[in-house]
Every structure is written in structure tokens, then in C-alpha cells.
Amino acid sequence: MRSVVVTGASTGIGRELVAGLVRSRARVWATVRRTEDAESLRAEHGDAVEPVLMDVTDEASVRAAGERVGAAGPLDALVNNAGVALPGPLEHLPLDVLRRQLEVNLVGQLAVTQAMLPALRAGRERGRDVRIVMIGSIGGRIAGPMLGPYHAAKFGLVGLTGSLRAELAPWGIRVLLVEPGVIATPIWGRGAADGRAMAAGMSPQAQAHYGARMDAAVAGAARSAATGLPADRAAAAVLRALTERHPRPRRVVGRDALVVAAVVRLLPDRAVYRLAAHQAGRRRPAPS
């Protein structure tokens, strides 16, 4: 029976992935921040899931989770899924909002990986096929307006994943990146609420410069929450990354993500820059 840690398991991709792993007869350590989410997972899956209360931004809770998992035996896989999307124009963005985004979506991913690596190494020493899967985003390949902190974190996760892949390769620990497009998960609903709160608190000058764009970003987040790719489809792609004999190092998920990946790969940088500027509402091409 494989043993897998999934972070951010209360909703969305994480929740669906836990269900898929249980169906495949894995033992799942599911990290959540709230007791009620832990109780919900236990009620749904029984002893197949071991909920773990953990906040990826709290070093003590991450360390305690790593010790708890390691004490139970070797680990086969870690899925770093926890994440948030906090919108706002970079010119007026409170730096605490940027720090929060980077802590959850980037620094926290490394903290959890460090905490779980002793158990992952123990699994590898017993000849198991050990994997770490990072949940990135197509937003780690192209950046648009009003989600600068999110893009910064996801671009950073690409580099972090690449370095981890190279560093852990001598021990046969595979490090993989899954890059979904827009997924129908609560992250966008929460992002829309955060965006409305930030827009309401902006100065009159900021409102004049960015009010319409913030409104568009909030509306887009609401649409994403309702019409994005179902979370179980993204979870299925993560499950394939965990189980395929020869998994792809980077896996793009969703038709929109495939289109964006092709555009970024095929178009020159100047054209991609102009595309992003048009999305931001520019009336003239970006200067060359």
C-alpha cells in the first residue's frame, strides 16, 4: 500500500485527489488547516485517510507534521497542492499581500518538502518509486494583470521544482510539476472576495487607474470558480503523475493551458508581451 501526503486537501484539487488515491488503495495523509475539514475527510473516507492539521506558513506545524508522518514509516509520495490567489495592482499592492502569496505558494512548498524528505528518503532506501509532485499553474508560463503575486509565486515554483529535480536525481527521487489552467475550485471564489475588499480600500487615484481592471479581475475570478475545468479532471492528471511508469517532468492540464503553453512556446517574446498588455487594457502596443 502506497503512502502519500497531500497538502491543501480540504477543497478543490486536493480533496478530489484524496478521493482518487483512496480508490487506488493508497494510505493518504491529508493536510488541512481547520478541524472541521479534518472531521469531514475522516467521515468521508474512514481510516483510509489520516487528516493532519497543518499550515504551510507555520514552521512549527510543518515540522510536527513531518515528524508525525516519518514516525509512521516510509513515504512514497508528496503532493504540494496548497495555494491561494490574492489579486491586486502591483503599484498599490500592500507588501504583506505579496509576502502572504509567496509564503503559501512558494516558501511553504519547500518547507513541507524539507519536512517530508526524511520519510521520502526512507521509502527510496526500501526500493520504492518515490515522487514529489508540485501543483503549479499555466500562470507560471505567462503573466497577466492583477494577479502579479500569484504569477510571481508560480514562476518561482517552476525554478524551485527544477532545482529540486536536479538535486534529488542522484537518489532516484522524481520531482514533477503539474500545470493546470483555470480549475473550478474555491480558490477563485476566495480570490474574488479578496479582490473586492482590496478594491474598496484603494485610494481615489488607484481607483481611477485600476478600478475597472480590478472589477474585470474579480468578475474573471468568479467565472473561473464556476466554469473552469472540474477539479476531479485536474486531480486525475496528478494521479497519473504519481502512477505512470515514465511520468512527464512537466504536465499541462486543460485545453486553455495547452493553448497558452503553445502560444508561449511558438510566439516571440515581443508578441507575448503585447498579448499580455492587450489583456491589461492597453490602447497602444507596448513599446519595442
Score class of each variant (00 low, 15 high):
287 P>M: 10
171 W>C: 00
106 L>N: 04
22 V>S: 08
272 V>N: 04
164 L>P: 05
75 L>T: 07
111 A>P: 05
3 S>D: 15
105 N>C: 10
273 Y>F: 08
199 A>I: 03
288 S>E: 12
206 A>C: 14
3 S>K: 07
240 R>Y: 11
194 D>W: 11
150 Y>W: 09
208 A>T: 06
157 L>S: 06
172 G>V: 06
167 E>A: 03
188 W>T: 04
24 S>M: 12
48 A>K: 11
270 R>Q: 14
26 A>D: 15
21 L>I: 13
49 V>L: 09
285 P>I: 09
254 G>M: 06
284 R>V: 01
103 E>G: 08
22 V>F: 10
129 D>C: 01
268 P>I: 03
39 E>Y: 04
263 V>I: 15
35 T>N: 04
52 V>I: 15
188 W>C: 04
67 E>H: 02
92 H>N: 05
223 R>G: 02
47 D>V: 14
169 A>R: 13
165 R>G: 10
138 I>A: 09
151 H>L: 07
155 F>S: 10
1 M>A: 14
53 L>P: 04
53 L>G: 12
122 A>C: 09
258 L>N: 07
30 A>C: 12
186 P>W: 11
262 A>G: 10
105 N>G: 10
164 L>D: 04
36 E>V: 14
230 P>H: 09
104 V>G: 03
149 P>V: 04
6 V>I: 14
220 G>S: 09
237 A>N: 09
204 P>E: 10
121 R>H: 12
